[in-house]
Structures are given as structure tokens and as C-alpha cells.
Design a protein around this nucleic acid. Sequence first.
DNA 1: AATGAATGAGCCTTCATTCAT
DNA 2: GATGAATGAAGGCTCATTCAT
Lengths: 183, 183, 183, 183
Amino acid sequence: MARERKNSVRQSIVETASRLFYKQGYTSTGINQIIAESGVVKSTLYTTFRSKEEILMAYLESEGAVSDKELKEATEKVNDPKEKVLAVFDYLVELVQQKEYYGCHFLNVVSEVTKEDEAIRTQIKKQKNNVRQLFRQLLQPIGKGDLTDEIYTLFEGALAGNKVHDDVFPVINAKKIAEKLLK
Amino acid sequence: MARERKNSVRQSIVETASRLFYKQGYTSTGINQIIAESGVVKSTLYTTFRSKEEILMAYLESEGAVSDKELKEATEKVNDPKEKVLAVFDYLVELVQQKEYYGCHFLNVVSEVTKEDEAIRTQIKKQKNNVRQLFRQLLQPIGKGDLTDEIYTLFEGALAGNKVHDDVFPVINAKKIAEKLLK
Amino acid sequence: MARERKNSVRQSIVETASRLFYKQGYTSTGINQIIAESGVVKSTLYTTFRSKEEILMAYLESEGAVSDKELKEATEKVNDPKEKVLAVFDYLVELVQQKEYYGCHFLNVVSEVTKEDEAIRTQIKKQKNNVRQLFRQLLQPIGKGDLTDEIYTLFEGALAGNKVHDDVFPVINAKKIAEKLLK
Amino acid sequence: MARERKNSVRQSIVETASRLFYKQGYTSTGINQIIAESGVVKSTLYTTFRSKEEILMAYLESEGAVSDKELKEATEKVNDPKEKVLAVFDYLVELVQQKEYYGCHFLNVVSEVTKEDEAIRTQIKKQKNNVRQLFRQLLQPIGKGDLTDEIYTLFEGALAGNKVHDDVFPVINAKKIAEKLLK
DNA sequence: AATGAATGAGCCTTCATTCAT
DNA sequence: GATGAATGAAGGCTCATTCAT
């Protein structure tokens, strides 16, 4: 039961922090807001996480797992190898048009940390490498493994362009290019 | 001389703030640091700019002008129409490998402001539309105007990918794709 | 014309400051707000008035003149000697129910200055002594000069009570007492 | 002991703030002065009180309790019903001649807040209604309940008049009137 | 005489974190 | 192990006033 409570505390913190970090940004979100909205006492927060940055890490890990899972599921909905790659971009088209979409969790954070925040940058890199790995796994079977980083660059272009313009057009264009590359 | 002093104060603030906003992020940079490093007294800063956000706007405008100019110059170095487009990516290759490069000024900021900061978001969008416009002007003469947003999406992919990985590979790959699209 | 301009500047400052001092309080009203709303340049304000306190003094003098005049007029509307005294309270009944009434100008200010602000306190005292003098002039002819300060105390009670409760009842009760005293 | 410390911090803040608010006025007293003179660290002050206004509220409540108690005690010193009412004014005579008397706490504050500061105005009104209630309780037994608000208006006139003139005469005159009314 | 620019001190409030219990 | 209280530094911004021109 102590274990349960601890977990629920941890979960409550991460959930609240995730929502706030995503919507307001990491730096703009204060510890006080997290404790106020999670209901967790401040000192308990600091026995669960050593620092605000550790909460950020938990957020990145948590959202990373969700992202990995959803990308994987998107590719599994179709059977044709090429279509699997394009399914990723179809997923993005849906994703970026969701009501509570505020951009890519990882691109958002990477702009708020300096080059010195190695742990965070490494985690973000790791997450993005998962995406590259996914593309590699989809492309190698059809002999297009060398397109991996090109397709991945389109992926980032879709997300970054969408963030700036708050418009789906960069995602659409990324997909168009992907189709051409896979022809 | 009064005019001179005014300009030097304003300029001193913007230069200092630009350096700090770029290296540390907007939110992580405090007004106190700006005044300490610019040597401008706090109240003078606030007679020159109404708010920190106004300094951010000046920073975006200033860097936007530089960016516009450098992109234009990059395309003017070559003569072949297709090469002009690729020259943009060559410019990026050089840019992102500079010692004091910390990512795209505009993508960095866009992650730190909420959807409510309309003035800032509009300025960033405007800046990025300048880039789209540049691509359009280069592509239309060779009958490839409909590739504008695809090339632009590659541009963003190059910058965003580079930011995450601190590596030139996304820029290289963006250029590779551009070459294929222009063939 | 220079004279005219000077006067209009002075008038503009006093009018704006009066409105703001009255509605927001003296301390809560900043010089910047006065210049913003009066359209007078800051350095011009400081050539017209030596300090914020001097503007306060001008405000008290200006409102004092208005108050003297209105009280006098109120007493002149009736003929019966006793009624003249009561007419002051009838005037107050109307006054405190006006839309833009925020309490007695002078009682308001007296609470914002310390005992050290002698000039201001003296001006306020002088203004209130004008009221005492008015009552004396009305009461002596009917052989009730010794009631002067009692009636005056009712006057202050009406204003102070009204300020607290934002209700006319203290004015009404002050008048009731005055009627009894004059019987 | 934790409890003790909490109380001592809170108490220390309220005591210091009370002294300063009373002597200098609410607006003219800064948080920095409160922390300097109370010895409480700024962030601790803000864990004890959410805002400066909350300290003002504590001040009003604290002084309100003192005022209620002293008025009650004053009336209990005498036995004759009518004398109990007059004892209130005798109390005021002593009060306003004290060395550190700077006017009525509540009338002072009411002039520094706008009509929008409802919580503060309500507290002040509540305090003054306690006085009205006291008068009512003293007057009803002798069949003079309908004089309550007249006597109360005298009370305010005494305090307001004293504040302006820094002289006891308004209190003396208020008492004189009260005596006549009670005859 | 008039002004735009500049000033230092101060405003109220929040930051992420740690401590004693 | 959990917590309420405490911390020093910093947050962005405004104050009334004066200066050089």
C-alpha cells in the first residue's frame, strides 16, 4: 500500500507536470503550480523527484513511450511496406489537428534547454532515434534503408513546420515528398 | 548625439538580449541579466522597451533581417537556377556548423511561447514566410513553383533535425532530397 | 499665448490629477498615469509643478473652491435661518448619492499623508475651517453660535459614515440630529 | 514548537505591518519595509500571507478585535445605562490624545482602497457595524434604540473631525450632542 | 522655456530547493 | 517516510525625479 501510494503520487506528479509542461512550456511551469494542481505536497514531490529536471525527464520518458506506441500502431494498420512508411505521415496529419496538440513534445523541450543539459538532450535524441529506427525497420525490407535519414528529416520538417504555422500544410508536403522518394 | 545615445542604448539592449535569448532561451534569460551585461540601467531599459516581450520582438526582427539577407546572398553566389535553391541548403550546412550556432532563432522561440502570444507567433510566421517566398521566387522561374512548400518543409526539417542531434546529417539529407526533387 | 499655453498645461494636469487622485487615491496614482492621461510631457509637468505633492496641493485648492462655492449656494437657496443650516445637510444627501462620488476629497487625502506633511494637512484644515466658519455665520445670527462645532462634527460624521458604508444613512441621521439641536 | 514558530512569524509580520500601516498608511508601506523591520524573510512572508492585501486584512481583524474589546470595557466601567453610552465618548477622548494615535484604523484604510477592494471594505464595514451594534445594545434597554445610528454618526464625526484637526474638540462636541440626545 | 532620455531605488511576487520535526 | 515551514535569489516592472540639450 505504501508502494501503491508512492506510485500514485509519482503518477499524479508526472501527469500534472506533463500537461503543464506541454501547454505552457517547461521553464514557464513552476513547481508550485505542479503541486497545486496535482495535490501533492511540496516536500513529498521532492522525495519522489530530486529536482524539477527529473520530472522533466519522467515527462519525456512517459511521452516517449506513448509516441513510440502510437507510431508503431499506425504502421501496423496497413500491410503494404511502402504504405507503412506513409502511414506515419498520415498519423501526423491526424495528430497535429487534434484540439490539444501543442507541437512535438521533444522539439518543444529541446529549445528550452541549453547544450549543457546533457541528460535531457540525450533523452530527446534517444527518442528521436527511436523514430529513425522505426523508419529503418520499415525501409530496409524493401531495400530502401539508405532513405532512412531522408524520411526522418521529412518527419522533423513536418512537425517543425506545423508548429510555426499552426497549419497542416508542412505535414501534407512531407508526405508528398515521401511518396516521391518511395516511388 | 541624443539620437546617437538613444540608438546605442536600444542597440546595446537588443544585442545583449539577442545573445542571451539565443544561448539560454527567452524564458531563462532575466531582465536583470540583460541589464547587468548591457550596462543599461533597468529604468532606462523600460523607457526604451515597454516589456520583456517587446525586446523579444526586437530580437526576432533583428535576426530576421540578418537571416533574410544571408539567405539572399547565399542564392546570389551561384547562377544556375536550380543551384540557387541548393545554395540555401549549402548555406545551412555552413551555418549549423558554426561555433556559436544554437539552432534556428525562430524555431527556438516558437517553442517558448504559447498560442496566446499572437504578436510573437505572427512575427515568427512572417519570418518563415519570407523563406517560403524566397523559395517561390527561385522555383517559379524554372517552372517548379508548386514545389515551394515541399522545399520549405525540407528547410525546417534540416533545422529541427540539426537542433535535436547537434549534427549536420539532417541538413545533408534535406539537401539530398532537394536535389532529387529538382531533377 | 505662452501664458495661455502654460495655463492650459497647468489646468490639464490638475484636472487629470484631480480625477485620478479622487478615484484611486493620491499614493496609488502615479506621475506616469497623470502625464499619460493629460497628454503633458513629463518634464513639462515638472516645470509647472515642483513635485507630485504640489499637484496634490493644487487639487486640494481647486476642490476646496468648488466645495466652498457649492455649500454657499446650497444655503442661499433657502431663506429661513435654521433652514440654511439644514440645507447644508440636504446638499450632502444629494452629493453623496452622485454617481461619481467617492467620498470627501479632504478626508480621503488626510488619511494618506502623515503628520509630517504639514503643508497638506494645513490646507485640509483650512478647508474644513471654512466649513466651520460657514456654520458659524449661519448660526450666530440666530443666537446659536455656540453650536458651531457641534454642527460641524455632524458634518464630518455624515461624510465619514457615508464613506464607510457607502450609504446615505449617516447623512440622514446627521441632519436629524441637527434638526433637534436647532429646535 | 513548530506551531509556536508559525505563530511567531505570523504575529511578527502582523505586528510590524500594523505599526507601519497605521503610522505611514497602507500604500506607503512596502513589503520590503515590513520584512526589514520584522526580520522575517520575504519568501517566508509570502508562505504565511498570499499577498500584501491579506496582511492588511489581518491588520484590520487584529485591530478590530482590540477596538471591540476596549469599547466594551469602557462601557463596563460604569453602571448607569445612559452613562455607558457616554463612556464610549469618554474613551475616545482618552484614545485620541494618546501619543501614538494616528486616527481611526478603519477610516484611515477606507480612504486608501477603491470601491473594487470589496473584501477590505466589507471587513471595515463589519467592524463599524460592531460599533453600531454596541450602541444598539446600550440604547435599546433604555428605550432609545432608534437613536442608534444617530449616536453612531456622532462617533464617526468625532473620529473624522479629530483626524483633520488633530484636536480633541470634535470628540468633546460629539459627546455634548450625545448628552443632549439622551436627555 | 521646453523636452526626450536617463536615473537609482523600490514595487509586489515567485522561483526551485532544503530543513527540522 | 512524510511534511509544514523556511530560505535566498531572482522574477518583471514602476516609482518620483533630474539632467543635458
